[in-house]
Amino acid sequence: MKKTTIFFTFILWVMSFTAVTAQTKSDIDKKEIGTMLDGFNVAAAKADYTTYFNYFADESTFIGTDATEVWDKKAFMAWAKPYFDKKSTWNFTSLKRNIYFSKDGKLAWFDELLDTQMKICRGSGVVEKINGSWKVKQYVLSMTVPNEVVDQVVAEKTPIEEALILKLKK
């Protein structure tokens, strides 16, 4: 009886340690991703071209606020270079961030509300751990529109986007 009690106590101890370890890994990964995303935003604000683009995986995509803005890393680098060269980049600060993980923990996705020169925007994306570092695979920047002014915004953008809608339907 004594051996059985000791055995079950040992099993419970091992199981509790495993649960703590799993929680700790998730917390560590969330902290790493949060630090990476903050560094990503700071690099843009400082117009640090090399550091900013090192946060992207080689095969990444950036989707901007305009419907035509979908770039792979190389195209986004080319588009952004003049802004970084002139030191006229963007300054985003996270206000609230959520991070989620795939079951195997190799991919994560996030959404965050950002304080920007455009007021509140939403950044969202997918990150992957590559060679021990989290890298952006896809980043989507969206402007938020308060429900109270949606009709005004739609009226404002309709003449601009109607031609694009027709073109995309062809």
Rank of each mutant, 00 (worst) to 15 (best):
Y52M: 10
A67T: 13
V140E: 03
R97D: 04
A47G: 04
G132D: 05
E161Y: 15
F76H: 15
K137C: 10
D72G: 10
C121Y: 03
N98Q: 14
V153I: 14
T50W: 00
G123H: 08
T93F: 03
W109S: 09
M143K: 14
T158P: 02
M77Q: 15
Q138I: 12
A155K: 14
F53E: 03
W71V: 03
D104T: 06
A45R: 11
K86M: 11
V149E: 04
D104Q: 10
K86V: 01
W79A: 13
S102M: 08
K73N: 07
A78P: 04
Q117L: 11
W79E: 15
G132H: 02
D85M: 09
S142P: 02
S88V: 14
Y139W: 14
I120C: 05
K129M: 05
F76V: 05
A80R: 05
D66W: 12
T50N: 14
I120F: 07
E148N: 09
K87P: 05
E148C: 01
D104I: 04
A45D: 11
D104K: 07
T51G: 00
F62V: 11
M77A: 12
V150W: 06
P82W: 03
T89H: 07
E128A: 13
E148V: 09
A80Q: 07
Q152P: 00
Y49L: 10
N131W: 09
